[in-house]
Every structure is written in structure tokens, then in C-alpha cells.
Design a protein around this nucleic acid. Structure first.
Lengths: 107, 107
DNA sequence: CGACTATGTCAGTTCTAGTTTATATAAGTC
DNA sequence: GACTTATATAAACTAGAACTGACATAGTCG
């Protein structure tokens, strides 16, 4: 599954957000997501699988717990795709910076 | 339809890429996409509709032609979502910069 | 005006992704 | 060893997205 498809699901985006705060057990993630989205534990487990298989997360076993961490590689890919478009919304910022520089020189 | 869902489709991503090079007629876009993906003109028209309705593109009529331009607003939203994660892949760069600064000071 | 071109929409079909319920596995606890 | 907890998977169902083919609208050109 392609990186953009993975991010297409709000539950998965939320899980990635949760993981950005640091390592989380499957159980902790499931509890939060269940509370927020009202879906079954199985649904969450399947989202976790998608995140694993698409490279957005990696897992480490500790006893019966599974500890998930975010892997930023696919996110970086998305960022790269976005890169050429960034000029569209940074144009105004650039213009502002130029203007500020000019004002400063006048002083 | 949410911005991430819109970007989930490869045809739509391609259309956005095409539009980033500047204004394009519906016909031009359709021709390129049909050649690359082998789908019907109707399918392309429907993707264009999604892009319009989700705010990724705006249209201007000129005779019978429709001229599409990219609107970066939803792309910027995606960029904003990505922002907090950027530190993950810029860490290495940051570390490198710190190291360089230290080396410079030693000299 | 009639034929043609550019574009868009509708209806129906197919495929896929997300969900639930039920089941499986393996590690801790008494 | 039986019971519980943590987690994952399988199978079946459903909803919705994407596609095709047919039709609709409106400019353009002879």
C-alpha cells in the first residue's frame, strides 16, 4: 500500500501522531483509538498491521507486549513529493522576507 | 473528501503534478493521463471533479475550454500536518550542522 | 442550421478497504 | 495446569470509490 493511501485513513494518521510522542504498546494505542473512534480492537490491530507493512512503524516484542515506534522514512517520501509545491505557499513568505530586508537596510 | 484521500489516488497526484507546471486545459490533462494510465475520458473528468470539489484545483472557462490551475491551500494543510514529524528526518541534518559548527569554532 | 469539438454528468458494475465477530497464540498469574 | 491478559489473524459483510459506456450541454465552424 502506497504512503498516501496509508495516510488517507484518519485512524492511521492518529496512530502516527500518537507514536510521534514516543514508543507505545499496542494496547495503549488501541485504548486511545477505541475511545476516540469507537472501533473494535481488531480494527485497530489491522491498522497497525498496515502501518508495519507500509514501513510507517516498526515493532519490538517485550514479553507479551508489542512496542511500536514510528519510522519516518515513508513520511519523508511524502515530504519529498510535496517539496516542489512548497514554493506556492512560501511565495508570500519570501516576499515578506525580502520586504523586511529592504526596510532593515533603509535604517 | 479529505485532502489525504484525494492524494491517495495516483491519477490525481499526477494531475496535480501536471498542473504545477501551469494552467492546463481539461483536454490536455485528459490526453496525458489517458496515455499514461489507460483510463477513459470520463474517469479523468471525475478525478478533475474531485480535485475541484476538494479545493485542489480551480477552473476558468474560455469558450468551450476549461482551464485548470492548482490551488495550493489543501497541499499546505498536508504540509502543516507533516510539520511536527519533520524533525525525525532533519535530526541527522541538525546533528551534522552542530558538528560542523563545533569544528569551525576549534579552528 | 447541422456537424463537430470540448467537456461534463449519470447509471450501473466491479473492486477494494475498513469493519465486526470469532478464533488463535503466547506470555504472565494464581 | 487452568485462567487471564496482550496481541494478532481469518472469514464474511458492507460501504464507497473508481471505472466504463451512454448521454447531455454548450461553444465553434463550415
Amino acid at each position: 500500500m502506497n504512503a498516501f493511501d496509508v495516510l488517507g485513513d484518519p485512524v492511521r494518521r492518529r496512530i502516527i501522531e500518537l507514536l510521534s510522542e514516543g514508543e507505545q504498546t499496542s494496547g495503549a494505542i488501541t485504548a486511545t483509538v477505541r475511545a476516540e473512534f469507537g472501533i473494535s480492537h481488531s480494527a485497530v490491530a489491522q491498522h497497525l498491521r498496515v502501518l508495519r507493512e507500509s514501513g510507517f512503524a516498526t515493532v519490538r516484542a517485550e514479553g507479551t507486549r508489542r512496542l511500536y515506534v514510528v519510522d519516518s522514512t515513508p513520511l519523508a517520501e511524502v515530504d519529498v513529493w510535496l517539496e516542489p509545491f512548497r514554493r506556492f505557499w512560501s511565495q508570500r513568505l519570501d516576499a515578506l522576507e525580502t520586504e523586511l530586508a529592504r526596510t532593515r537596510r533603509k535604517k
